[in-house]
Amino acid sequence: MQVTRRQFFKVCGAGLSGSSIALMGFSPAPALAEVRSFKLARATETRNMCPYCSVSCGVLIYTTGDKSKNAKADIIHIEGDPDNPVNRGTLCPKGAGLLDMVKSPNRLKWPEVREPGSSEWKRISWDDAISRIATHMKKDRDANLVEKNAEGVTVNRWNTTGFLASSAAGNEAGYLTVKILRGLGAVALDTQARI
C-alpha cells in the first residue's frame, strides 16, 4: 500500500492513537521518523501562497489552535501545497524559509514616527499616526491640487504627493488603493511592477 505523507496525516488525524500505527501496516521505524506529524495533525491547515516570485507556489500554513475565538493562532510550520498544479508541493529555498520571514525580528509591530531633524523613532498610536498623515495629505492637497490648467480645462490633479504601490499586496488591496488615490486626484503614482 502506497500511503503519502498527507494521507498518513489524515489517517492519524482520524483518531488512531500512535500505538495503532503498526496495525495499519507501517513498520514502526518510518512511523517514528514522522514525529513532527503528530504536532501538525493537531494543527490547523490554511491554504495560502508564497509571496515571493510570480510562480505563486501554493503553501500550507500550520497554526496552533483550532480557529476558535479565544485561541490565538500561531504559525508553526509552512510547506508546499501538493494539490497546487504548478508547484505540486515543492518550494524553492526562498519559499522553504517563509516561516523565518513571518517571524523576522525586523517585523514592524506598531506605528512610529521620526520627527524632522530627530535621530530616533518614536512609538505612536494608530489614531495619532493616521491623523497626522491625513493632516499632511490634506494640507498638501488643498494647497496644490490643480483644478484647471492654463487653457481653463478641468484637470483636478494632485501631483505634489506621490505614491508607490506594492506588488506584494493582494488584488483587493491594490484595487482599493488605486480607487482611493484616483479619488483624491493623485497622478504621481507608480508600482514596483515597473521595476
Binding site: S54, G174, A193
Partner: peptide, 17 residues
Amino acid sequence: LRGHANVQGITDMCLYS
C-alpha cells in the same frame, strides 16, 4: 516570468499613472 507574487495583479489593477 514576472517578479513578485502579485506583480501581475497589481499591474492589472493599474496602480500607475
